[in-house]
């Protein structure tokens, strides 16, 4: 399908980013025609969805199964005090369509599971991992491999975060890097940590959609906010990975 045309509103709204080298009207049209699946509307999902919306990604599919809890509000910036008790996708949807009324936001209020993950991600150009557990991340990883679309992985703990860009056929998959799931836990976290990681994830997604710059392919970026250091770990495919190397 050809990339949609820009209108006068788009040309003004996105003027500053279209000035970026390699972006231009062509890049903006690519974003306008793109769909991102945002898996989770919490700490990571809030900045990811916000920045993809402001950048003009034409269609966002947002998914979450939880309701807003008061203890979420130190970091989940799409949700406010008067949303406590509401479904997160409803709360997120209402903000996102006001942040950018020119895009389409499709909410899915429910659990991402083995039965629905392929359907939910069908027709998407990129999967944004904003989950809080590895079981669902593994399902998203399988969907990324099945549909052959990139997945931008992110996770956080305290003042630390990890982020990488997984592209089927070009990089390891999530199961190559983390063959066994660490346990789900109630983790400590400062709100700025998902802010840093989520905005890096959104940056990576936009670069992947436009084909500009160099992404975090084959590099796991570790953010250490306590000492304000960034580290890089080289990552490579596991030749025996049950998800991406062994025929399913």
């Amino acid at each position: 399908m050809p990339a949609p045309e820009l209108n006068d509103y788009d040309r003004t709204r996105y003027d500053r980013q279209m000035r970026i080298r390699g972006f231009g009207e062509e890049g903006q049209r690519k974003l306008k025609g793109a769909t991102a699946f945002v898996a989770g509307c919490g700490g990571l999902g809030s900045p990811i969805a916000t920045y993809l919306a402001t950048a003009g990604v034409g269609r966002l599919v947002i998914a979450d199964m939880d309701v807003v809890d008061l203890s979420n509000l130190n970091r989940q910036i799409l949700h406010w005090d008067d949303n406590v008790g509401e479904d997160k996708v409803k709360s997120a949807y209402e903000k996102l369509v006001r942040i950018n009324p020119s895009i389409t936001v499709e909410p899915f209020n429910g659990c991402i599971d083995g039965n629905n993950v392929l359907e939910l991600t069908k027709g998407c150009d990129v999967i944004m991992d904003a989950m809080d557990n590895f079981e669902t991340r593994y399902l998203l990883n399988r969907a990324s491999l099945y549909h052959q679309i990139p997945m931008i992985y992110g996770s956080i703990w305290g003042l630390e975060g990890r982020v990488t860009t997984l592209v089927p056929g070009r990089t390891p998959c999530l199961e190559c890097i983390f063959p066994k799931a660490p346990p789900k836990e109630t983790f400590p976290v400062l709100g700025t940590t998902p802010g840093v990681i989520g905005t890096i994830q959104a940056t990576e997604a936009i670069k992947v959609l436009l084909g500009i710059g160099s992404t975090l392919e084959n590099r796991l970026l570790v953010y250490d906010g306590e000492y304000m250091e960034f580290h890089e770990l080289k990552i490579a495919p596991n030749p025996e990975c049950p998800a991406c190397r062994v025929k399913q």
Binding site: G43, D132, W157, R162, P182, E185, P194, V222, H231, L233
Partner: peptide, 10 residues
Amino acid sequence: IALFPPVSGG
């Protein structure tokens, strides 16, 4: 030697 546990939060 640097030791990184994976972290799962989101």
